[in-house]
Design a protein around this nucleic acid. Structure first.
Length: 581
RNA sequence: GCCCCGUUAGCUCAGUCGGAUAGAGCGCUGGAUUCCUAAUCCAGAGGCCAUAGGUUCAAAUCCUGUACGGGGCACCA
């Protein structure tokens, strides 16, 4: 309908003012939906835009255009109002077209045809040193919903988890696991202070014992006393412990590490699956350091790449990247003085690898505390002559959990954080998803645990699901068959509420497109709340199961459309639309 | 010090490409149920869109300054 009006307006304007130089192919006519019904259904500001170049009064221009505009069965009236808006009034029947679209397209209503673009979304990527906690929840849901949304919008999406299975933290994890394992044989062994304290490692140690019995343990006074005697320098002490365990276990140390990694990834995958999050790619950081035969590893290659472009130098024994020349605050170390690569070096290689895989869009979901990290990654891509535009990073703000009106405090250091699993068990996976995605990503979020569990209209998810269940109930009671609902009498849907519902349904496809392009899935939540709200209101003013068959038919057809759109929206959020509650 | 993000009703927040009289929920006040799920609905009160300029026919929306709040600035990951 908007397109149709645009075309008409365009030809009228060419006709009237075509000789003017500023009317050309790029001239954009915008048509907006009207909020106030007295202004009609749609409006164009074209006369206001033309006023300046034509040096004429906008109302006069609007009047000229209005006279030329030919009304028909759908557009029944054209009017000029305010400073020079041209308002269009649609016939009552014309609103019903959307219901027919929905009934034909069903689950595909809102879906956009494939655009043949490939997009990579990397998210969660939590360190594989322990189970996911609530801090990871928001990013997990965001990535998951954005993936679904982009698929809906015609993209081909890969969802990737980057596993940081390289470097010092893996050694700390291995040492922590081994100590837990050793404690199964000797309770007097002290846990490493800087180690991973969580109970999950005790469970994993018990598994390790099942596989290897006591093969990896023998009484060792040296390690025991080392653990007893903490050094003032905690970091140094940690390294000493790692070294002594490493030399004790020699080749078996990597077995312990792989065991820990495998078990923890298993935990993470289980939790994610429970949360409706499923990555189809798992990318290992350590793979970036493997080299085949005489080839360089990916990390070496990427440093080589930066070097060949003249962005690498050596200073004080370390290898640096000249990121300051490409928009970063300062230069960054790629390889430390002690010969170890930095995390950044991995990330350069990782991102170059993402580019090599031929994606049209590369999206990273990062915690907002990483925002200072982006300039150096972009600098590295720019230095490697990659198209930096392709790389998008969405920063996710922290979420506070609120219980009984108070912030739930957590501290990572003591290991006393609430795990994602516990959150899901408390409020259900669906409520957790909804509450996490209900807010713009870059805004702080207060997650009200009590509200998420509440079964009333105050809980927005409940409210939306209830609308769906209510419609299902009406359709059941009416004994109507949805597929047989007649589409010929839609002019009967002429009350204010009925027309408003149809207008809101019409907004769904453009909403999906906008949410996808702007990476703003929270818009779906707000839309669904609006749709549920107008439905509940309608429900209280009108009866649907009535004597008049044609009227009943039309109203049920409308409800069926609402039901379908709620279902489609909830599906993108990864939430079930219940048939009864 | 530098860099991000924010500031909209008492509270929590939406606000599309800049459009006509700025929206919702909670809370507050008052109402609706012989009837398809009251797990709901209706009505009322409540606003200097932080602040000062600028751009524009038109600014909560775009630009600049200021104030306040949150976060970030490693040879950590």
């Amino acid at each position: 309908m908007k397109e149709k009006i645009k075309e008409s307006l365009y030809s009228i304007i060419i006709d009237l003012y075509g000789s003017s130089e500023f009317i050309h192919d790029e001239f954009e006519i915008s048509i907006q939906d009207n909020k106030e019904k007295e202004y009609g259904d749609l409006a164009s500001n074209v006369a206001l835009v033309l006023a300046k170049p034509l040096k004429r009064n906008p109302r006069e221009i609007a009047e000229e255009i209005k006279i030329k505009f030919i009304t028909d069965k759908e557009i029944v009236k054209v009017d000029v109002a305010g400073p020079g808006f041209i308002n269009f009034f649609l016939s009552k029947e014309s609103h019903g077209a959307i219901l027919k679209d929905i009934s034909i397209q069903k689950n595909n209503f809102g879906k956009i045809e494939s655009n043949n673009q490939k997009v990579l979304i990397e998210y969660v990527s939590s360190n594989p040193t322990g189970p996911l906690h609530v801090g990871h929840g928001r990013g997990a849901v965001f990535g998951s919903v954005l993936s679904r949304l982009l698929k809906e919008a015609g993209f081909q999406v890969d969802e990737e988890y980057y596993v940081n299975d390289f470097g010092r933290q893996m050694n700390i994890l291995s040492a922590s696991l081994w100590i837990r394992y050793a404690q199964l044989f000797d309770k007097n062994i002290k846990m490493l202070n800087n180690g991973y304290q969580g109970d999950y490692l005790i469970a994993i140690a018990q598994n390790l014992k099942k596989f290897r019995s006591d093969e990896l343990y023998e009484d060792d006074e040296e390690i025991k006393s080392l653990l007893e005697n903490e050094n003032e320098d905690a970091e140094k002490h940690t390294d000493e412990v790692i070294e002594s365990i490493k030399s004790k276990l020699s080749d078996e140390f990597s077995y312990v590490r792989d065991f820990a990694l495998r078990e923890i990834l298993e935990l993470i995958k289980e939790d994610l699956l429970e949360f409706g999050v499923e990555h189809n790619h798992w990318f290992s950081e350590s793979a970036l350091y493997k080299s085949e035969l005489h080839d360089l590893s990916k990390v070496d290659q990427s440093i080589e790449e930066l070097s060949s472009k003249g962005f690498v130098y050596e200073k004080e024994g370390a290898i640096w990247f000249k990121s300051s020349e490409l928009g970063d605050d300062k230069d960054r170390v790629l390889k430390r003085g002690n010969g170890e690569f930095t995390y950044f070096a991995s990330d350069v290689a990782y991102h170059l690898d993402k580019y090599d895989r031929g994606y049209d869009r590369i999206i990273n979901i990062w915690g907002s505390d990483h925002h200072g990290y982006l300039p150096r990654v972009k600098a590295a891509m720019e230095a490697s002559k990659k198209n930096v535009e392709k790389l998008e990073v969405v920063f996710i703000q922290f979420a506070n959990l609120i219980r009984a009106g108070k912030k739930v405090t957590m501290s990572t250091r003591s290991g006393k954080f609430i795990t994602l699993k516990e959150l899901i068990e408390e409020v259900t996976s669906e409520a957790a998803r909804f509450f996490y995605i209900n807010r713009k990503a870059d805004q702080h979020l207060d997650f009200d645990l009590d509200l998420a569990k509440e079964q009333s209209k105050d809980n927005p998810l409940y409210y939306i699901q209830y609308a769906h269940a209510r419609i299902c109930s009406v359709l059941r009671k009416s004994k109507a068959r949805e597929e047989e609902l007649n589409t010929s009498e839609l002019g009967l849907l002429d009350s204010n509420k009925e027309i408003e519902i149809q207008k809101i349904l019409k907004q769904y496809p453009p909403l999906i497109e906008r949410a996808a392009l702007a990476s703003e899935p929270h818009l779906i939540c707000y839309y669904l709340k609006d749709l549920a709200s107008i439905f509940h209101s309608y429900y209280n003013t009108e009866k649907f199961i009535v004597e008049d068959q044609k009227l009943m038919n039309s109203r049920l057809f409308l409800l069926s459309g609402v039901k379908q759109v709620i279902c489609n929206g909830l599906t993108i959020l990864g939430i079930n639309a219940p048939h009864e509650m």
